[in-house]
């Protein structure tokens, strides 16, 4: 009975959580090192993606939604060189024709994309194209507003400029663009205040 009371109390206090057990969580250590080779450590800040966050994304990016597995606690990593921050790392999943694609975004202090790499992209052809500098250049150096201008009128696919540059990988370009926009938007919504204090 005592146990049930405690658990009931915990339920009332609890927030949205991940659908997977926490023992399976792993930091993207090798990717952070790849994006910030000079970093000495990383600093994690965990925040909650809830229904309110999801609604804000839908307003800012109509026709877009967050994947159901994104509701819950998420980590933004700050790449550290001693006591100084080098930039931020945000890992997000985006649905594609070949399953969920996990992209590790390096974001500078002005919240522009500074680089990215793939933690999971189970389409070897697309992954090869995506790691190429021509493809990456479409996104690198751009902030949220600049990336939003790359969307076509439907709000979910990339415009002609991006698709021309992406050549053989139009679907990949759409996925990466949507993921970049949501990553920068979520970084601002969830971690913006905290990052300004650093």
């Amino acid at each position: 009975m005592k146990l049930l009371s405690i658990l009931l109390m915990l339920i009332l206090l609890s927030s949205n959580v991940s659908a997977i057990a926490y023992c399976s969580l792993r930091d993207p250590v090798s990717q952070i090192a790849k994006l910030y080779p000079q970093k000495t450590n990383q600093l994690s800040i965990v925040k909650t993606v809830d229904d309110n966050t999801r609604a804000q994304v839908k307003i800012a990016l109509p026709s877009n939604d967050l994947h159901f597995s994104e509701l819950g606690r998420h980590t933004l990593y700050i790449a550290m060189l001693g006591k100084n921050s080098l930039g931020y790392v945000h890992v997000r999943s985006e649905q594609s024709d070949w399953g969920l694609v996990e992209i590790v975004w390096a974001i500078d202090k002005e919240l522009r994309i500074s680089n990215f790499t793939f933690q999971r992209c189970r389409s070897p052809k697309n992954k090869k194209i995506a790691e190429g500098s021509d493809f990456k250049d479409i996104f690198i150096g751009k902030n949220y507003q600049e990336l939003k201008e790359l969307l076509s009128n439907d709000g979910v696919t990339a415009n002609k400029y991006v698709l021309d540059k992406a050549q053989d990988a139009p679907e990949l370009a759409n996925v990466v663009l949507r993921c970049a926009l949501k990553s920068l938007l979520l970084t601002e919504i969830l971690w913006g205040k905290e990052l300004k204090k650093l």
């Binding site: 926490y22 930091d27 000495t40 450590n41 600093l43 994690s44 965990v46 700050i78 001693g82 006591k83």
Partner: peptide, 11 residues
């Protein structure tokens, strides 16, 4: 439960 312990210089 899962808890990350941090200091000002990192995790």
């Amino acid at each position: 439960t899962h808890k990350v312990f941090t200091s000002p210089t990192g995790d």
